[in-house]
């Protein structure tokens, strides 16, 4: 396949960026999208140009590092991570636009790489259960109903990639935040910190400069792990409950 790529190039956080056009040839249908970019980079290096910087690591769809907006869609046309997107989703002669996640809370580091440390700070503000090592009771001391365990798992699947923020017209981090709140709040182990967790995490989310939720639903459509939009609904309920009790 022969493709035309229009890629966002930006030297560093402070520099101006622009879309640059590249031609790539000899792209196999079985290549992953990132392997296609590897091919581009190999040729850029040999021609003495700066290769395109992009985040990637496990290439198995689980680490959450990869983060490209492809033709206007976070992680591209399939509902998966960029690393699991294959070139068979495109046709010979296509022009593909590749851009970084866009949100003021995710400043561009270089080219397609953004700084997602705001997510880490949201987790730091309360996305945990206080259980210092050694303090744990026997694992079977508390039974967890299977539906609650499954619900917790469904939300714990979030890989923290940030596609929800990238897709949201408001750059909102509600889906990410709610996934963690719901994972922990539904479990009996998470109950003691249930109120403070949601208040603190929402507070941190707001202070990072993410937008608010207008329930456009783009986040859940883009989420490669299928975190449902109702995750947000449920966090809203937790929030009002906690606000009433003030923590």
């Amino acid at each position: 396949m022969k493709l035309t790529l229009r890629v966002w190039r930006q030297k560093n956080a402070g520099a101006e960026g622009a879309m640059s056009t590249y031609e790539v040839d000899g792209i196999a249908k079985d290549m992953s999208f990132l392997e296609m970019l590897d091919t581009l980079n190999e040729s850029l290096i040999l021609s003495g140009e700066d290769p395109v910087a992009f985040d990637h690591d496990c290439r198995e769809g689980i680490c959450g590092a990869c983060s490209l907006v492809i033709n206007g869609e976070a992680h591209g046309p399939e509902r998966t991570t960029t690393c699991q997107l294959h070139m068979r989703s495109f046709s010979d002669g296509d022009t593909i636009d590749i851009e970084p996640w866009r949100a003021s809370a995710f400043p561009v580091v270089k080219d397609l790489v953004v700084d997602r440390s705001a997510f880490d700070r949201i987790i730091e503000s309360g996305g945990y259960i206080t259980a210092p090592t050694g303090s744990a009771p026997e694992a079977h001391a508390t039974a967890v109903p299977k539906p609650a365990a499954d619900f917790a798992f469904e939300h714990a699947e979030c890989i923290g990639c940030g596609a929800c923020v990238a897709a949201c017209p408001n750059g909102s981090a509600m889906l990410f935040t709610s996934a963690k709140v719901n994972h922990l709040n539904v479990l009996p182990q998470g109950a003691p910190e249930r109120g403070s967790r949601v208040l603190d995490m929402v507070g941190q989310m707001d202070s990072e400069g993410f937008g608010g939720c207008t329930l456009a639903g783009e986040c859940a459509t883009a989420c490669p792990k299928g975190i449902p939009l109702f995750s947000i609904t449920r966090m809203n309920r937790e929030f009002v409950r906690a606000a009433r009790k003030r923590g």
Binding site: G72, E99, S104, G211
Partner: peptide, 11 residues
């Protein structure tokens, strides 16, 4: 919301 998404996608 508008400030949280200052740069629009080119695509």
């Amino acid at each position: 919301d508008i400030a949280a998404r200052p740069v629009k996608y080119a695509h």
